[in-house]
């Protein structure tokens, strides 16, 4: 992707990264039993209670769930940019090629950001600094991570803008974020994430703030770039429609739990968790025109007051007495899938 090459002035950052005990055989990213709490004045909110998933190079993982289910918190925990306090990681591990990121000191962790894992935020207008030019904000990555000179970094920034197909990149590089359209700004965010050729990109609702037609373009660009660079992509969304086209596998989250894990086709064909099933039924479909949409009744519970047993049980039509007392573990479902439901077979076969 780079036409301009940079000879690193400060080897230290790359040296630190190179000297970490990477394990080539381990999965690219392995999140295991991650737990995050928020300490607020109204008590402890359990934002994530034991989320696990893996991601390999070239693979796309969709994380799906309603607002406040812990999707974004998971993303920020992986990036290491949660505000601590009020947030606190109380358990679990986040392993990148076998190295547990949670065990790294803050400085090493910082080197991992952007170099190894990068993130794309939802609202590019507020995620880009309004007082610096787009080019400056892109160039900053090269100047601070690779020790590039201002001129070199600027040239690389222009390359990046071309890579994400922004027209007239040489001129636009000197423009400020507010001078771009929504779609173009989101391309800048993607360019920023790609800058240091990371192994993983996390896209946190990358298209929610955009018009539908622009959504498709941006999504396509992201998918193309991921393929050509063979990166791992985590796509966080509440929109089942976005997920279906691009992802390989899905983790469904509800109230801080990962309630179902499966390949995308398996999920769409035959969900094994009542929440996933309800989500699928609530998508309007052309072939069901005229029939009433099945909306999910009720609201997710407040994270400070999770109900005993299964958190979805108050809204679940499959719920029985056992669900109100016993927290369901992740059951194995045929086809190398997981479901956190005592009665997954009932859901699976219904």
């Amino acid at each position: 992707m780079t036409e301009t090459t940079i000879e690193s002035k400060r080897g230290t950052e790359n040296e630190v990264l190179a000297n970490l005990p990477w394990d080539a055989n381990a999965p690219l990213l392995e999140v295991d039993n991650l737990q995050v709490e928020f300490h607020t004045r109204d008590g402890v909110a359990k934002a994530i209670n034991g989320v696990s998933f893996t991601l390999d190079a070239g693979e796309t993982l969709g994380i799906l769930g309603e607002s406040g289910c812990g999707k974004s918190v998971t993303a920020q925990a992986i990036m290491g940019i949660l505000d601590i306090p009020p947030a606190k990681i109380t358990g679990g591990s986040i392993k990148l090629n076998g190295v547990d990121l949670l065990q790294l000191d803050e400085k090493t962790r910082r080197h991992v950001r952007a170099n190894k894992i990068a993130i794309i935020f939802q609202d590019a207008l507020s995620a880009l600094n309004p007082v610096f030019t787009v080019g400056w904000q892109l160039a900053e990555l090269y100047r601070k991570h690779s020790g590039a000179s201002r001129a070199q970094a600027k040239a690389k920034a222009v390359d990046l803008l071309k890579l994400v197909r922004i027209p007239a990149a040489e001129q636009r590089v000197n423009a400020f974020p507010h001078q771009f359209s929504g779609g173009m700004r989101q391309r800048v965010m993607i360019a920023m994430a790609l800058a240091l050729e990371p192994d993983i990109i996390i896209a946190d609702e990358p298209t929610t703030a955009l018009d539908v037609t622009v959504q498709a373009q941006v999504m396509q660009l992201l998918a193309d770039l991921q393929k050509s660079q063979n990166m791992g992509l985590i796509l966080i969304t509440h929109d089942m429609g976005v997920v279906a086209d691009v992802v390989d596998k899905i983790t469904v989250m509800y109230a801080g739990d990962a309630v179902e894990r499966a390949d995308v086709y398996q999920i769409y064909e035959r969900p094994a968790h009542p929440y996933t099933k309800a989500l699928l039924e609530s998508i309007p479909r052309v072939d069901m025109k005229g029939q009433e949409l099945a909306a999910i009744k009720g609201l997710p519970p407040p994270l400070t007051q999770l109900p005993p047993g299964c958190s979805f049980q108050p809204r679940c039509r499959f719920a029985k007495d056992r669900c109100t007392t016993e927290d369901p573990p992740l059951y194995d479902v045929p086809g190398n899938r997981k479901s956190a439901c005592h009665y997954w077979e009932e859901v699976f076969n219904s």
Binding site: T40, S67, S72, H238, S282
Partner: peptide, 21 residues
């Protein structure tokens, strides 16, 4: 395209943990 109940935008976690006033 998506569930109306889910069309709410994701806010910062602190807001969702406000007490049920």
């Amino acid at each position: 395209m998506s569930d109306p109940a889910m069309s709410l935008q994701e806010g910062p976690p602190a807001e969702q943990t406000e007490p049920a006033k």
